[in-house]
Protein backbone atom coordinates (compact mmCIF):
# COMPACT_ATOMS: atom_id res chain seq x y z
CA UNK A 1 0.00 0.00 0.00
CA UNK A 2 1.42 3.40 -0.98
CA UNK A 3 2.05 5.92 1.77
CA UNK A 4 -0.41 8.38 0.20
CA UNK A 5 -3.11 5.73 0.25
CA UNK A 6 -2.32 4.89 3.86
CA UNK A 7 -2.49 8.59 4.74
CA UNK A 8 -5.85 8.96 2.97
CA UNK A 9 -7.33 5.85 4.58
CA UNK A 10 -5.96 6.25 8.08
CA UNK A 11 -5.27 9.90 8.84
CA UNK A 12 -8.68 10.61 10.37
CA UNK A 13 -8.64 7.37 12.37
CA UNK A 14 -5.13 8.00 13.68
CA UNK A 15 -5.90 11.63 14.57
CA UNK A 16 -9.20 10.75 16.19
CA UNK A 17 -7.55 8.07 18.34
CA UNK A 18 -4.72 10.41 19.40
CA UNK A 19 -7.10 13.29 20.07
CA UNK A 20 -9.17 11.12 22.38
CA UNK A 21 -6.02 10.53 24.44
CA UNK A 22 -4.23 13.88 24.29
CA UNK A 23 -5.68 17.12 25.61
CA UNK A 24 -3.91 19.52 23.29
CA UNK A 25 -5.02 19.68 19.65
CA UNK A 26 -1.60 21.01 18.64
CA UNK A 27 0.19 18.13 20.36
CA UNK A 28 -2.23 15.67 18.76
CA UNK A 29 -1.38 17.06 15.32
CA UNK A 30 2.35 16.76 16.06
CA UNK A 31 1.97 13.17 17.24
CA UNK A 32 -0.14 12.37 14.18
CA UNK A 33 2.57 13.75 11.86
CA UNK A 34 5.19 11.69 13.67
CA UNK A 35 3.10 8.56 13.29
CA UNK A 36 2.93 8.94 9.52
CA UNK A 37 6.63 9.73 9.39
CA UNK A 38 7.29 6.45 11.25
CA UNK A 39 4.95 4.58 8.92
CA UNK A 40 6.87 5.97 5.97
CA UNK A 41 10.32 5.16 7.35
CA UNK A 42 9.29 1.74 8.68
CA UNK A 43 7.16 0.59 5.78
CA UNK A 44 9.71 -2.09 4.93
CA UNK A 45 9.38 -3.54 8.44
CA UNK A 46 5.71 -4.35 7.98
CA UNK A 47 5.22 -8.05 7.39
CA UNK A 48 1.85 -9.08 5.95
CA UNK A 49 1.88 -12.49 7.56
CA UNK A 50 2.12 -10.93 11.03
CA UNK A 51 -1.26 -9.22 10.82
CA UNK A 52 -3.36 -6.60 9.10
CA UNK A 53 -1.85 -3.25 8.18
CA UNK A 54 -4.45 -1.54 10.36
CA UNK A 55 -3.18 -3.42 13.41
CA UNK A 56 0.41 -2.41 12.57
CA UNK A 57 -0.60 1.25 12.22
CA UNK A 58 -2.62 1.05 15.43
CA UNK A 59 0.45 -0.27 17.28
CA UNK A 60 2.60 2.60 15.97
CA UNK A 61 -0.10 5.11 16.95
CA UNK A 62 -0.54 3.66 20.42
CA UNK A 63 3.21 3.61 21.04
CA UNK A 64 3.45 7.22 19.90
CA UNK A 65 0.84 8.19 22.51
CA UNK A 66 2.70 6.18 25.18
CA UNK A 67 5.92 8.03 24.27
CA UNK A 68 4.08 11.33 24.55
CA UNK A 69 2.89 10.43 28.06
CA UNK A 70 6.44 9.49 29.06
CA UNK A 71 8.08 12.57 27.55
CA UNK A 72 5.57 14.89 29.18
CA UNK A 73 5.77 12.92 32.46
CA UNK A 74 2.05 13.03 32.80
CA UNK A 75 1.49 12.04 36.40
CA UNK A 76 -1.64 10.02 35.88
CA UNK A 77 -1.09 6.35 35.13
CA UNK A 78 -1.33 5.13 31.59
CA UNK A 79 -4.83 3.68 31.10
CA UNK A 80 -4.62 -0.11 31.20
CA UNK A 81 -5.94 -0.61 27.66
CA UNK A 82 -3.21 1.58 26.20
CA UNK A 83 -0.30 -0.33 27.71
CA UNK A 84 1.58 -1.90 24.87
CA UNK A 85 1.42 -5.64 24.30
CA UNK A 86 2.04 -6.14 20.62
CA UNK A 87 1.65 -9.90 20.63
CA UNK A 88 -1.65 -9.77 22.48
CA UNK A 89 -2.86 -7.00 20.23
CA UNK A 90 -1.91 -8.84 17.07
CA UNK A 91 -4.23 -11.72 17.96
CA UNK A 92 -7.03 -9.79 19.63
CA UNK A 93 -7.25 -6.56 17.68
CA UNK A 94 -8.68 -7.38 14.30
CA UNK A 95 -11.82 -6.33 12.44
CA UNK A 96 -13.29 -9.77 13.06
CA UNK A 97 -12.99 -9.44 16.83
CA UNK A 98 -14.63 -6.01 16.66
CA UNK A 99 -17.47 -7.64 14.74
CA UNK A 100 -17.72 -10.26 17.46
CA UNK A 101 -17.84 -7.57 20.11
CA UNK A 102 -20.67 -6.03 18.11
CA UNK A 103 -22.41 -9.44 18.06
CA UNK A 104 -21.92 -9.83 21.79
CA UNK A 105 -23.46 -6.40 22.40
CA UNK A 106 -26.36 -7.42 20.17
CA UNK A 107 -27.26 -10.13 22.70
CA UNK A 108 -27.80 -7.54 25.40
CA UNK A 109 -30.85 -5.46 26.21
CA UNK A 110 -30.67 -1.83 25.13
CA UNK A 111 -30.04 -0.62 28.70
CA UNK A 112 -27.28 -3.19 29.26
CA UNK A 113 -25.64 -2.24 25.96
CA UNK A 114 -25.80 1.45 26.86
CA UNK A 115 -24.13 0.81 30.22
CA UNK A 116 -21.32 -1.17 28.58
CA UNK A 117 -20.72 1.46 25.87
CA UNK A 118 -20.89 4.40 28.25
CA UNK A 119 -18.57 2.69 30.73
CA UNK A 120 -15.98 1.06 28.46
CA UNK A 121 -16.03 3.31 25.39
CA UNK A 122 -16.91 6.69 26.89
CA UNK A 123 -15.04 5.93 30.14
CA UNK A 124 -17.89 7.12 32.34
CA UNK A 125 -18.04 5.85 35.90
CA UNK A 126 -21.18 3.98 36.96
CA UNK A 127 -22.13 7.07 38.98
CA UNK A 128 -21.84 9.27 35.89
CA UNK A 129 -23.94 6.75 33.95
CA UNK A 130 -26.58 7.03 36.65
CA UNK A 131 -26.70 10.82 36.14
CA UNK A 132 -26.61 10.60 32.39
CA UNK A 133 -29.26 7.94 31.90
CA UNK A 134 -31.63 8.53 34.77
CA UNK A 135 -31.30 4.89 35.89
CA UNK A 136 -30.70 4.41 39.60
CA UNK A 137 -27.17 3.49 40.66
CA UNK A 138 -28.41 0.05 41.67
CA UNK A 139 -29.93 -0.51 38.23
CA UNK A 140 -26.72 0.61 36.52
CA UNK A 141 -24.66 -1.81 38.61
CA UNK A 142 -27.11 -4.66 38.00
CA UNK A 143 -27.13 -4.07 34.26
CA UNK A 144 -23.35 -3.75 34.18
CA UNK A 145 -22.94 -7.09 35.94
CA UNK A 146 -25.55 -8.93 33.91
CA UNK A 147 -24.13 -7.52 30.66
CA UNK A 148 -20.62 -8.67 31.56
CA UNK A 149 -21.94 -12.13 32.49
CA UNK A 150 -23.77 -12.39 29.16
CA UNK A 151 -20.76 -11.20 27.17
CA UNK A 152 -18.41 -13.58 28.98
CA UNK A 153 -20.76 -16.47 28.09
CA UNK A 154 -20.76 -15.33 24.46
CA UNK A 155 -16.96 -15.09 24.29
CA UNK A 156 -16.61 -18.53 25.89
CA UNK A 157 -18.92 -19.99 23.25
CA UNK A 158 -16.86 -18.33 20.53
CA UNK A 159 -13.70 -19.57 22.18
CA UNK A 160 -15.01 -23.11 22.10
CA UNK A 161 -15.47 -22.71 18.36
CA UNK A 162 -11.93 -21.37 17.90
CA UNK A 163 -12.04 -17.60 18.58
CA UNK A 164 -10.47 -15.92 21.63
CA UNK A 165 -8.94 -19.27 22.46
CA UNK A 166 -5.93 -17.82 24.25
CA UNK A 167 -7.98 -15.65 26.60
CA UNK A 168 -10.35 -18.10 28.31
Amino acid sequence: MEIEEIYRNYHDKVYSYIRSRVNSAEDAEDICSNVFLKIQTRSEEYEKDKGAVSTWIYAITKNAVIDYYRVHRISEELPEEIVSDDELDRDLLQKETLQELSEALGHLSEEERDVIILHYYDNLSLRDIEKKTGMSYGQVKLRHNSALKEMKKFFLKKSASGRFSSYQ
Binding site: L93, Q99, L101, G106
Partner: peptide
Amino acid sequence: DQTERKIKRLFDYQRFEQEPGLQKLI
Protein backbone atom coordinates in the same frame (compact mmCIF):
# COMPACT_ATOMS: atom_id res chain seq x y z
CA ASP B 1 -11.65 -9.37 35.17
CA GLN B 2 -10.31 -10.68 31.88
CA THR B 3 -13.60 -10.05 30.06
CA GLU B 4 -13.55 -6.41 31.11
CA ARG B 5 -9.95 -6.02 29.94
CA LYS B 6 -10.80 -7.54 26.57
CA ILE B 7 -13.83 -5.28 26.12
CA LYS B 8 -11.82 -2.20 27.08
CA ARG B 9 -9.01 -3.09 24.69
CA LEU B 10 -11.44 -3.73 21.84
CA PHE B 11 -13.27 -0.45 22.42
CA ASP B 12 -9.92 1.33 22.43
CA TYR B 13 -9.09 -0.29 19.11
CA GLN B 14 -12.54 0.65 17.80
CA ARG B 15 -11.61 4.33 18.21
CA PHE B 16 -8.94 3.60 15.65
CA GLU B 17 -10.54 1.05 13.33
CA GLN B 18 -14.18 2.31 13.48
CA GLU B 19 -15.77 -0.98 12.44
CA PRO B 20 -19.16 0.14 11.00
CA GLY B 21 -21.50 -2.33 12.79
CA LEU B 22 -19.96 -1.62 16.18
CA GLN B 23 -19.80 2.12 15.46
CA LYS B 24 -23.55 2.14 14.77
CA LEU B 25 -24.25 0.66 18.20
CA ILE B 26 -21.98 3.27 19.79
